[in-house]
Amino acid sequence: MTFLARIDNLSKFEQFVTNCAIQFGLDATRTSGLQVAVEEVFVNICHYAYPNSGGTASIVAGTEGDALVLEISDIGIPFNLLLSSDPDTSQDILERKVGGLGCYLIRKFTDHASYRRVNGANILKLVVLRIMGQ
């Protein structure tokens, strides 16, 4: 499934993921966490992948055993979202930076996340197990 990488397509993108999660049988809590992770990826593509022009974000869903596997790709500038550093979650309100949470939430709400660059495409693979910790 391919979407124009525009913020106003976020709900359509997330609906696709939610439908996949429901079909797969992911529980409500894990589905909600997956929505957060997927939003981070899609919004990042919308904001940074195509600095000089519009572009697209594609998503492919599949299963590997007891895991739901999503691959989200763009053909924008090379960027590994997963290399962002984690925020300091112990800081108080005035010290806390506004931002830096996206990558952290992707890692927290998936069981595995990986990046690869293939044939000019950024591909982010997110894996969520049907039951946490299996």
Partner: peptide, 19 residues
Amino acid sequence: VYISSAGLRALLATAKRIK
């Protein structure tokens, strides 16, 4: 029913301004 990092950022930015 749902909050993402963009929502958290908005909460934090607003609270900082108010503080």
